[in-house]
Design a protein around this nucleic acid. Structure first.
Length: 694
DNA sequence: GATCCTCGAGTTCT
DNA sequence: CTCGAGGATC
C-alpha cells in the first residue's frame, strides 16, 4: 500500500514535535504544552503508525518502550576507548596537574572546562546519519554491553540529532543517572508496594538500566547528561571543549548547568569550592568535579598516559562523613584467636550504604581514639569501602558513657585471654577448644585459596561444628550425603555436591595443604616456600626444627659480619622464613593434636600433589616484580598472576622502589598514585599481555 | 640499629 | 584496604 505524501510529512512533523517537547520537558524542565496536548500528539502519531506500519522506524518516539524482553546484552566494542580519568584527592594534586599541563604546553596559563562529576553510569550513544542506533555501557573501557533498547526508553536521550545537517557519525558520551527527587519518589512507591528499596540513586540507575525487560526500565525515571564526544565524522570544526558541550546542548542533549570555563589553578580550586557548597542542593549525586583542558588542539598535544588522558583530571570530594552512636562494643574472635573490638553503631547512611558495624582494630586504637560506649562518633568509609570511626564528638559524650575493657575470658569459649607483651593484639588461649577458632580453622581449610572446597562456607561450617558433626578439617572427609541432607537448608542435591567437592579437594598441591593447616605466620607465600623445601608432609613433620632455627640464626649472624667486610654471603636455607616463623611452625607441629589431624587427613586419602617442576627456560619477565591494581578485563587477577609467575616474574601487593611494573586496570586504587609518585613504570593490561607474549 | 619491603590477618556490605 | 610485624638489607 502506498503511503500518501501528506501522511509522511505529518508523521515526520509529529516526531519532531514530540521530540522537541521531550527535550523541553526532560532536558530543560520547561514544558511548552500541557500533558494533554502532548498525549494528543503522541496518540495521533501512534494511530498513523498503526495505519501505515511501514512508516515505523526504531527511532520513532512511539518505539521507546520495547515489548520483548531480551535474552541477554550483547557486547559492543567502543570505536574509541572510554578511558578513566586520573584522580586528585587534594589541592596539591590539582596544583601538580596544572603544572604538568603548563610545562607540557609551555604556556603561562591554561583555560579549563570544569563540570560536576556525575555519580552514575558512563554510557556511549552512537548516532549514524543523525539517528540513534546504538548505546553501550562503558564496560572495561574497550568493550561494553549493548543497552540500546533500555536507553531508548530514556526521554532525555534524543532519538535524532536535531541539527539540520546531521553528522555522518557521532558518538555522544555521558552518564545515565537518576535524579535525587525521582529516586526518592521511586523509593516511596516501592515502600508503598512493600517492595525492595534501592540504597542510592546510582544503584537505582544501574539496576534499572540493566533490565532485560525494557518495560521495567521505562517505568523508572532515568535521565542522561552528556559530557563529551567520542568518534565523530561530519561535525562542525570545534576548537574548544566548551563549544562541543554547547553543540550537544543545542542538539537537545542535557548538559550540566553548572559547567563553566575557568582559568589557571586558582580558577580550578575556586570552582571546586563553589560546587562543593552547592553539592547537597544539586538535583543529582556527584562525587567530585572534572577539569579538562579546554583547547582541543592542546588536548591532542597532551595525549595519554596509561589509561588516562593527560589533559583531564577528576577532583574527588573527600569521603562523605556522618555521625552515629556507639551502641555497644563487641569482641570478635578471629582464626588465630585474636580478639577484635567492633563498634555496633546505630544504622547510618554514609557513602551510599547503611553502616552498622565498624572495626576498632585493637585496644590501642580504642584508647587512641578514646571511643566509649554511648559516644557520638564520626563515621566514614575508608577508601570508600571499609567503615571506619574517624573520631569521637567529645562534647556529645553522655555522662553515662562507658569505657571499653578487653574481656579477661574469651567471649566464645571462656578460656583465658592474654596479650603477648609488645604485641597489640589480645588472644584467646583456647586454641581449637574455642568454637570460634575451630569454625574458622575449618572455614580457612576449605577456603578458595586453601583447599578450595565449594559449598563449604560460613553457614555450613557453623552448623557442622555446632551439631558436633565436625571437629577438625579431617572430619570433613567422613561426611556423607544422608548426614548433610539432614541439616537445615540442605537438600539431597546440594549435599551430593558438597560431598563431591570435598572428594575433589583430596588432590591439591602441597603448598595449599600447608597453607590450609592455618599455622601462625604461614600464609600462601610462606607455605609455598615450605612446600618447595620439604617436598612432602612427612618432610615437614620429620624436620629438625631446632637445628633449622639454630642454622638460620648462625647464617644471619655470619652474613651480617661478612657484609661489613664485603665478602661473599652464605646461601640461607628457607629465604623469607626467619626464626620467628620457624618457631611458630615448630610449635604447631609439636602439638600432638595437630599431628593427629594431619595424620587423619592423610589417612582419609588427602594426597598432596607437587606441581610439575617449572622448566628451566628463560621467562619473558624473569626476576621482575609486578603489582596489580584495579580491575583487569581480559584476565582475572589470579590468571594474570599465574601468567607472570609462569614467565619468571613475581607479583606482590604493595608498590615500592623495587617494583618494576604496576599494572593498572579500571578504577585503580592508591597503588596507581604510589606508582606515579615513585616513578614506577605503569602498564595497561594490553601492555602486560604484550610483555608476556600473548 | 634503622629502614625498607613483604607478608599475614582482619574487615564491610551487597 | 590498612595495619602490624617479621625478614632482609645496609
Amino acid at each position: 500500500m502506498n503511503v500518501p505524501r501528506d501522511v509522511r510529512g505529518r508523521v515526520a512533523a509529529l516526531r519532531e514535535e514530540i521530540e522537541r517537547h521531550n527535550h523541553q520537558y526532560y532536558a530543560l524542565d520547561a514544558p511548552l504544552v500541557s500533558d494533554a496536548e502532548y498525549d494528543a500528539l503522541f496518540r495521533e502519531l501512534q494511530e498513523l503508525e498503526e495505519k501505515f506500519p511501514e512508516l515505523v522506524v526504531p527511532e520513532s518516539p512511539t518505539q521507546r518502550i520495547g515489548t520483548q524482553p531480551q535474552a541477554e546484552f550483547g557486547d559492543v566494542r567502543h570505536r574509541l576507548p572510554m578511558l578513566s580519568l586520573g584522580n586528585a584527592f587534594d589541592n596539591e594534586d590539582v596544583v601538580a596537574f596544572d603544572r604538568r599541563v603548563r610545562e607540557a604546553l609551555d604556556v603561562e596559563q591554561v583555560e579549563y572546562a570544569a563540570e560536576p562529576k556525575f555519580d552514575g553510569l558512563a554510557i556511549s550513544l552512537t548516532y549514524a546519519d543523525g539517528v540513534f542506533v546504538r548505546g553501550a555501557t562503558r564496560g572495561d573501557g574497550y568493550t561494553g554491553e549493548d543497552v540500546t533498547a533500555n536507553l531508548r526508553t530514556i526521554r532525555a536521550i534524543p532519538m535524532r540529532i536535531a541539527a539540520r545537517k546531521a553528522p555522518a557519525l557521532l558518538e555522544v558520551r555521558g552518564e545515565v543517572l537518576m535524579l535525587k527527587r525521582d529516586f526518592e519518589a521511586m523509593n516511596a512507591a516501592q515502600r508503598a508496594k512493600a517492595e525492595r528499596e534501592f540504597v542510592n540513586p546510582r544503584n537505582a540507575a544501574a539496576g534499572s538500566l540493566r533490565q532485560l525487560d525494557t518495560r521495567i526500565t521505562a517505568s523508572r525515571r532515568l535521565t542522561f547528561y552528556a559530557y563529551g564526544v567520542g568518534a565523530a565524522e561530519g561535525i562542525p570544526g570545534f576548537t574548544r571543549h566548551s563549544e562541543v558541550l554547547d553543540y550537544l546542548a543545542a542538539n537537545w542533549f542535557r548538559v550540566a548547568a553548572e559547567r563553566d570555563v575557568v582559568t589557571g589553578v586558582d580558577g580550578l580550586l575556586s570552582y571546586y569550592g563553589r560546587i562543593g557548597t552547592q553539592r547537597i542542593a544539586l538535583p543529582y549525586d556527584i562525587d567530585g568535579v572534572v577539569y579538562k583542558v579546554n583547547e582541543l588542539v592542546a588536548q591532542e598535544r597532551l595525549g595519554f598516559v596509561a589509561r588516562a588522558p593527560r589533559f583531564a583530571l577528576a577532583h574527588k570530594f573527600p569521603a562523605e562523613e556522618a555521625t552515629s552512636e556507639v551502641v555497644s562494643i563487641e569482641v570478635q574472635v578471629g582464626r588465630t584467636g585474636a580478639l577484635t573490638p567492633v563498634a555496633r553503631l546505630t544504622p547510618v547512611f554514609v557513602g551510599g550504604v547503611t553502616v552498622t558495624n565498624a572495626t576498632l582494630h585493637n585496644l590501642d586504637q580504642v584508647r587512641a581514639k578514646d571511643v566509649r560506649i554511648g559516644d557520638t562518633v564520626i563515621v566514614r568509609r575508608a577508601g570508600d569501602v571499609i567503615p571506619e570511626v574517624v573520631r569521637v564528638l567529645a562534647e556529645k559524650r553522655p555522662t553515662d558513657a562507658r569505657e571499653f575493657h578487653m574481656p579477661e575470658q574469651c567471649p566464645v569459649c571462656g578460656s583465658a585471654v592474654e596479650r603477648i607483651e609488645s604485641e597489640a593484639v589480645f588472644r584467646c588461649t583456647g586454641g581449637l577448644f574455642c568454637a570460634a577458632q575451630r569454625k574458622q580453622a575449618i572455614r580457612h581449610y576449605a577456603s578458595r585459596r586453601a583447599m578450595d572446597i565449594e559449598g563449604v562456607g560460613e553457614k555450613l561450617v557453623d552448623q557442622l561444628v555446632e551439631s558436633q558433626i565436625v571437629h577438625t578439617p579431617a572430619d570433613l572427609y567422613h561426611l556423607d550425603v544422608p548426614t548433610l541432607a539432614a541439616l537445615e537448608r540442605m537438600a539431597e542435591k546440594s549435599a551430593a555436591n558438597v560431598v563431591a567437592a570435598i572428594e575433589q579437594s583430596k588432590h591439591r598441591t602441597l603448598a595449599r595443604l600447608i597453607y590450609a593447616l592455618g599455622m601462625h605466620h604461614v600464609g600462601e607465600e610462606v607455605a609455598k616456600i615450605l612446600a618447595q623445601y620439604f617436598g612432602s608432609i612427612d618432610g615437614l613433620l620429620n624436620a629438625d626444627w631446632d637445628a633449622l632455627i639454630a642454622d638460620k640464626e648462625r647464617v644471619q649472624k655470619e652474613n651480617t659480619r661478612r657484609r661489613s667486610r664485603d665478602e661473599a654471603l652464605l646461601e640461607p636455607v628457607l629465604p623469607g622464613v626467619g626464626p620467628e616463623i620457624m618457631q611458630s611452625v615448630a610449635n604447631f607441629l609439636r602439638q600432638s593434636h595437630n599431628r593427629e589431624v594431619i595424620r587423619a587427613l592423610l589417612d582419609s586419602g588427602v594426597t598432596p600433589e607437587s606441581p610439575p617442576a617449572r622448566p628451566l627456560r628463560r621467562g619473558k619477565v624473569d626476576g621482575r616484580t609486578f603489582v596489580l591494581t584495579g580491575a583487569l578485563s581480559k584476565l582475572s587477577r589470579e590468571e594474570a598472576t599465574a601468567r607472570i609467575v609462569a614467565e619468571g616474574g613475581r607479583v606482590t601487593g604493595s608498590v615500592s622502589k623495587k617494583t618494576d611494573y604496576v599494572v593498572v586496570g579500571a578504577d585503580p586504587g592508591s597503588k596507581y598514585q604510589k606508582a606515579r609518585e615513585l616513578g614506577v613504570t605503569v602498564l595497561e593490561e594490553q601492555d602486560l599481555l604484550n610483555l608476556l607474549g600473548q
